[in-house]
Design a protein around this nucleic acid. Structure first.
Lengths: 230, 230
DNA sequence: TAGTGGTCTAGACCACTCA
DNA sequence: GAGTGGTCTAGACCACTAT
């Protein structure tokens, strides 16, 4: 702990901020002054301060110096794992079952989300995910067959679409939307609950570069919670 | 773009990974080799690679080298802003109203969340948050009066408890839990919807160091969505 | 214009871990 | 034991922006 390092300096500065040594908006010493105080090179202090800025503790400006962030914003980070890992992380046994798989003309809203042309078709799939044979989540998914032609050879008996797509297009990006919905009859039946039950739902759209890959809606079992620290 | 910099190198490497030049689990060249290839110092390549590792693109091990992450995990980041900013960001006018405020003996579950003793009391508050005079969220909050004695002088007519606590204890940490619940009669009435409606709910516990500050449950208006990119 | 952070370099030593 | 990443240094120049 007495050893100089960017982590130790970062922690020290974080504590000094939390202790109130500097108030919201206050300017904190120069990199050069701090490097003398901590007895290290400016680069090392710089690294610690950049980390603090990255986490929203301070705001840095050239010539303006480094200030305690007057508008501290807490950031929450989630890992979005594949469902199998999510289930297995709780110690449960995972199983999935494809209940529907067909070439389909997507709904207009899906067409928009995937930026498809008017005649483009998608592969539509419904998948049930189980944890210890209890329903864990119900998935509806549309896959852009033009962007992912190999989808027709995918072994969906072994891998869920979720997992197969992660392995096939590993570094795609996308956006995610969390919401609460009342289960309709179909979703309620799939999840073994009553219609109207509040269901935690995740909408996700995925693309690779400029090619839109897949859109998915996930309905989690009743009582599902997403947890994180911040 | 032709200029050497850690960002440019990071982007270049990210593209090479996405393009499939290296497959999942493949080893990518040494820092030294890459620094020769890009014509820069090893430190610069190191910085780019650490950023890639931080974002889950690669996994690095001493002696083992740097490999394309065989288990790519996507991370979602949320800013958790104060509600006023959340409302005003949509262009709406924010207003809040404290509907209840009293010293109360908390429920056992809150007692656990705040790690309170058996006789400790809390300040219990209910607050309605409005966007353009429409209900936006209903908040139930317990504040540890021992950790935050100044709460009795707080100007809750001007600032919501949410905002006041952020300003008073700016660098507290905590955990967050998202879930979907069916509105009970009270929540439904507060939010102007029917009992049973699926409501997006956020549970949050906050502490500073080892002192537990506050626990809160937030019920968002029907149809509320939390959105992020990943 | 001057002060501050942003970045890069060349070199060094250390810490880990694979073979 | 040897190869790789992790970190630190001392110095330099640049880019931004507050004054």
């Amino acid at each position: 702990m007495t050893k100089n390092s960017h982590t130790a300096i970062r922690q020290s500065l974080e504590k000094r901020i939390q202790s109130g040594e500097w108030s919201l908006g206050d300017r904190i010493p120069d990199e050069i002054d701090l490097s003398q105080e901590y007895g290290c090179a400016r680069t090392t202090v710089n690294r610690a301060l950049q980390a603090l800025a990255n986490d929203g503790f301070v705001v840095r400006k050239r010539k303006g110096g480094t200030r305690v962030n007057p508008l501290p914003v807490r950031q929450a980070k989630f890992d979005i794992p594949i469902i199998r890992e999510q289930v297995e992380a709780t110690g449960s046994v995972y199983r999935h079952h494809v209940t529907e798989k067909a070439i389909a003309s997507p709904t207009p809203s899906i067409r928009t989300r995937l930026r498809l042309g008017h005649d483009d078709e998608t592969l539509y799939m419904e998948t049930m995910h189980f944890a210890d044979e209890q329903p864990f989540a119900f998935e509806m998914r549309w896959i852009n067959t033009i962007a992912v032609p190999s989808v027709f050879n995918a072994p969906f008996d072994r891998l869920s679409a979720n997992e197969w797509l992660v392995q096939t297009m590993p570094f795609s990006s996308g956006d995610v939307e969390f919401s609460a919905v009342n289960a309709d009859r179909r979703v309620a039946r799939a999840l073994g609950t009553k219609p109207g039950t509040a269901i935690f739902s995740i909408n996700r759209t995925t693309w690779l570069g400029d090619r839109f890959i897949t859109a998915m809606t996930l309905f989690h079992r009743a009582g599902f919670q997403l947890y994180t620290k911040l």
